[in-house]
Design a protein around this nucleic acid. Structure first.
Lengths: 363, 363
DNA sequence: TCGGTTATTGTGACCGGTCACATGGCGCTT
DNA sequence: AAGCGCCATGTGACCGGTCACAATAACCGA
């Protein structure tokens, strides 16, 4: 195939060591039109005659042409690239949301960049935003913690972005595109469920809160108050199983604790471990309910009753909103908003004093 | 600050609606040098006088200049961008490796792109590689499954890349940069450990294998053979807890099964759940050992004995190798290779018939 | 058959960097 | 003091697309 004089080689061919890529000029030559016409075709301009378009399309297919992202970005064309700014991707929520975003970007032919914002320090946030904005692409910020929130506020207003948040900020203050799952209501449902089992009250192990108004904690509190029941002090948790373990050790010491709602499933497994070590059986002595429904939750011992949150769907929705903001997607094509849903398994049951009346199921 | 006549505004300022970015020409004007000198400074060219360099550096800082990645890529400069091609990021291994790569790229000031290769079909693989190669950046392929392997082979030889694999391919066949953890030896260690507890043999639940030579399975088999012990047929597992559950149900039916090595921790938790439902206690009746040491493994009931694999470190190492391949990093700065390590917890113990002599610890 | 729209296509300049090469200044040798 | 080479810097062209605008072709009614 080398040295074939029949067809003219791409403009500069292998003269340099860079892999010879085919450009719109090559396509134009092959199709017998101008490079601008090729540009119009690849951008779906309506003002190209159907026959001409087909000619160009054939040339594109024949030469295996692919538009160069860098050139397009440089010339100010449609970007087709998204960068995700997120905190620790080891956590289930951000990881699953990222997975959903990836699927959506891939389906739409967008490139995806990722940048983790480790700390919430102004310097770190500033650096992250500056670097992410660089290729003139769009931004998605996953903001479940303080660092994410700080990042959100550091994004210049002229950069197209969408945010995945726990609860939407004041719309008057920040007219942005947001996406979230109503976990306040979900927390109420979970709390009510435990109450309905006969527990006197429900304790709460929190994910890290940066404001007084964590929706999960708020939902839990609201449910207790509406039931006219004592509201225990929430136990400060974290994101990881280890902090759940610590919180569980503390709760296990209190014989009045019969039901615990956990801010996420990692916390829940830590609490369950602590209970096991303290000799308190789950769910016979203590009921545990988690949050998120991680893939492992159904296989814990006992299987975890938890609140399912479809972060993957949330990520896909967020991307859909972003491209409709960019004017490249249609509003009517946006997927529906995911809903939180209580998944009843076996880690919660009636409290010990009610066991006689409502014996626990044997799995 | 608007309309200040003191300093000349950036070349085109806000004449168009795009965010006015400062270019090397702006910097050059401010520093009183040519744009090429600015280019030299930002690329650490040695042939710039120290005083001139400082002049330019000051101008850069003053104007807040940041090189435009797209322009640099287009002009064939150093790219400073890496794209990761990986299979499902929901799995612990790829996810943790990706996390390590992200940390390393961030520290090095590289941009990071991600592309998931869903299936291993030639079309999918081809598309993934073509898109990923597009910005002329470097590539990292995480190849723990068939799709990843297919991707590996589809990367053109002139694209700089490094691969994270389970076991290195024949170096003669593919002179590439590889990085891996010796899990064959680790599987032998885990198997030997179970044997040393007194088990007659050890069963194996496999992660999906695309060749006969999965290192984990090979290590398991080698250990059994060296001990002169019966080698049971491996049970076909998968990546997810659910397939571990199915495999566990099958194994639980066989009273001879007293020890099970699982290809990963997700499988292990599925097996444990199946055993629990079948009324076989872990570790009293059956011992379970996992692979990977996911963050939750220590908190399972019982805590899982497993083989720790530091995928995060592996990802960082891979990136270090990649940039030294690119000529931008130093070989002596590469981090050490991570080693697999058996973490003994409580999911494995002596078989039932030996319980009298070696009673199980009560946690 | 002609002028005036309108649909379609082509031309030139530009985005912000890099490369190759040309040029200026300096110290050194002879 | 002229000639040389090296260091430091500047100039022009180019990467592969896009934009604005000009130019041509096709079509219409009068």
């Amino acid at each position: 195939m080398a040295g074939d004089p029949g067809g003219p080689p791409p403009s500069r061919g292998a003269s340099r060591d860079r892999p010879a890529s085919v450009s719109i000029r090559d396509v134009a030559r092959a199709a017998g039109v101008s490079y601008q016409t090729v540009s119009r075709v690849i951008n779906d301009s309506p003002s190209v005659k159907a026959s001409t378009r087909q000619l160009v399309l054939d040339a594109i297919a024949g030469l295996g042409f692919r538009p160069n992202r860098a050139a397009r970005a440089l010339a100010g064309g449609p970007v087709q690239a998204v960068t995700v700014l997120t905190s620790n991707t080891r956590l289930y929520g951000p990881a699953a949301a990222l997975e959903g975003i990836e699927e959506a970007t891939r389906a739409a032919g967008f490139a995806l960049g990722v940048r983790v914002v480790e700390s919430g320090t102004p310097a770190d946030v500033k650096d992250a935003v500056e670097r992410a904005v660089d290729p003139a692409g769009a931004l998605i910020v996953i903001a479940y913690d303080r660092a994410g929130l700080a990042t959100l506020n550091a994004v210049p207003p002229d950069v197209p972005m969408a945010g995945i948040v726990e609860t939407p900020p004041d719309p008057a203050q920040a007219p942005r595109t947001w996406v979230w799952i109503d976990d306040r209501t979900a927390a109420m449902d979970a709390t009510n469920y435990l109450l309905s089992l006969g527990h006197q009250t429900v304790h709460y192990v929190s994910i890290p809160t940066w404001m007084e108004t964590s929706p999960r904690a708020a939902g839990w509190r609201a449910a207790l108050e509406r039931a006219g029941v004592r509201v225990p002090k929430p136990v400060e948790g974290g994101w990881e199983p280890r902090s759940g373990y610590r919180a569980g050790l503390q709760l296990a010491r209190d014989p009045d604790v019969t039901a615990v709602l956990c801010g996420n499933d990692e916390l829940a497994i830590g609490v369950m471990r602590a209970m096991a070590e303290a000799g308190r059986a789950v769910p016979e002595d203590v009921s545990i309910v988690g949050f998120d429904d991680t893939p492992q939750a159904a296989f814990y011992t006992p299987p975890l009753t938890t609140v399912r949150q479809d972060f993957n769907a949330l990520g896909r929705l967020c991307f859909a909103k972003l491209i409709s903001l960019l004017g490249q997607g249609r509003q009517d094509q946006e997927p529906p908003w995911p809903q939180a849903e209580l998944v009843v398994r076996q880690s919660a049951g009636p409290p010990p004093e009610r066991r006689r009346r409502y014996p626990p199921r044997r799995p």
